[in-house]
């Protein structure tokens, strides 16, 4: 039988690629409590005074360093709510990994609602990687629920690339991402989402381009299979001479449902905003091409989905 340690190890590997004690700054949250933590000279992690989460403070000029704050829930019926604030100084270049995994071993729902706020200083670069994963013991009926909220405040000249992936085992998710982008700042969001069974996933992304020469590029790819439902809303608001682009592609299969509502709101005549959205089945010619390489129809379908969500 799998021990709690084994479950934690596997989930940490899935969501944060952690295979042993991490180096550098990290905070591992386990079943709603901080389990282990390490700060470095430049990246200081501390508990909030009101106990609602952690603050991560990164000094000006911190480069080529990373911070990892994974969350593991291995308990049925737990509702974990946390607020984590990232205060990133000026002229930094850092990577932040913040995955969450749930192992539900019973019949009650387990839920993680995380609010992450990023205050990114002038001319700093941040890569933010967020992976959500769920699994359950055989026969357990409890659902895995995640409702992440991400708020991003980019100061002048700052850059953030956010990669969020939810591929497996989350029964219900309601994801909200909001960004405020100042002069010469840039945001890239890449979202990958797969739903199956009767899962439901909703993602809403709002990006406000408030400064001259600011830009946002939002790329969402989703695959909905079985009887699942996937909903994507995006809204890019151009309040200054700026550029915004959103791209929403979805593969729909079986009896799934997909709703995509990309929105553009130009409040300045110099706002250049574009959106693209496409929903469709896997093209027959794509399957045939891979079959001519010797793949079975099932292998071809899996290869197309793997590539699409990579």
């Amino acid at each position: 039988m799998m021990t709690i340690d084994d479950i934690e190890k596997r989930i940490l590997a899935e969501v944060a690629d952690i295979h042993k004690t991490p180096t550098g700054a990290y905070n591992i949250r386990y079943n709603g409590k901080a389990q282990s933590r390490n700060s470095t000279e430049n990246i200081v992690i501390s508990s909030k005074e009101d106990g609602t989460g952690i603050d991560i403070r990164i000094k000006d000029g911190t480069v080529n360093q990373s911070c990892c704050i994974p969350v593991v829930i291995a308990k049925t019926g737990l509702k974990d709510v946390v607020t984590n604030d990232f205060y990133i100084g000026e002229n930094c270049d850092v990577q932040i990994v913040a995955g969450c995994g749930i192992h539900n071993c019973g019949d009650q729902d387990s839920q993680h609602d995380g609010l992450h706020r990023f205050f990114i200083g002038k001319n700093s670069k941040v890569k933010y990687v967020e992976k959500h994963y769920g699994e359950a013991d055989d026969g357990s009926k409890g659902g895995n629920i995640m409702n992440p909220v991400t708020e991003i405040y980019l100061d002048e000249g700052a850059f953030m690339e956010m990669e969020s992936t939810q591929i497996k085992g989350i029964d219900s998710t309601n994801r909200v991402t909001k960004a405020e982008i100042k002069k010469d700042a840039k945001l890239i969001v890449r979202e990958r989402l797969l739903t199956n069974g009767t899962q439901e996933a909703e993602s809403r992304i709002d990006a406000d381009l408030i400064g001259e020469n600011s830009s946002a590029n939002i790329i969402s790819r989703s695959v909905a299979t079985d009887k699942s439902k996937s909903v994507f809303y995006s809204r890019i608001v151009g309040k200054a001479p700026c550029s915004g682009h959103s791209e929403c592609d979805a593969i729909i299969m079986d009896d799934a449902k997909v709703l995509a509502l990309p929105g553009l709101d130009a409040l300045s005549p110099d706002a250049a905003l574009i959106h693209e959205a496409a929903i469709g089945k896997i093209a027959g010619e794509q399957l045939i091409k891979l079959e001519t390489l010797g793949l079975t129809p099932e292998e071809a379908e899996a290869a197309i989905i793997d590539g699409f969500l990579k």
Partner: peptide, 18 residues
Amino acid sequence: PVRFKGIEVLDLIRLAAK
């Protein structure tokens, strides 16, 4: 030739070469 979003040239050659 068929286009694939997300599949890279290396992926396709690996699939072809099995």
